[in-house]
């Protein structure tokens, strides 16, 4: 699944960042394949806001769709 499919409040593990520009940007902020991020807010047809420690980041829809993740923790 991709980052836009993670419900608000849930955590996800980054599996693969498909877009090289996004990957480069996130790498330097400390988000890489294998990092766990919390999805703070997912807006309908809008951006996804993720948090990792004290970093909060707003990622546009099209960016988030190209970040593949797996769910972490208490999923049903």
């Amino acid at each position: 699944m991709n980052l836009t499919e993670v419900p608000s409040g849930r955590k996800a593990r980054i599996e693969s960042i498909l877009d090289p520009v996004t990957r480069d940007y996130l790498l330097r902020l400390g988000i890489v394949e294998g990092s766990t991020v919390e999805c703070v807010q997912r807006m309908a047809r809008g951006p996804v806001v993720v948090r990792k420690s004290s970093l909060e980041l707003s990622l546009g829809r099209r960016v988030a769709e190209r970040i593949l993740v797996s769910s972490v923790g208490d999923d049903p």
Partner: peptide, 9 residues
């Protein structure tokens, strides 16, 4: 362009 924006504290 892609929207990637850091939210400052």
């Amino acid at each position: 362009s892609a929207f990637m924006y850091e939210l400052p504290k």
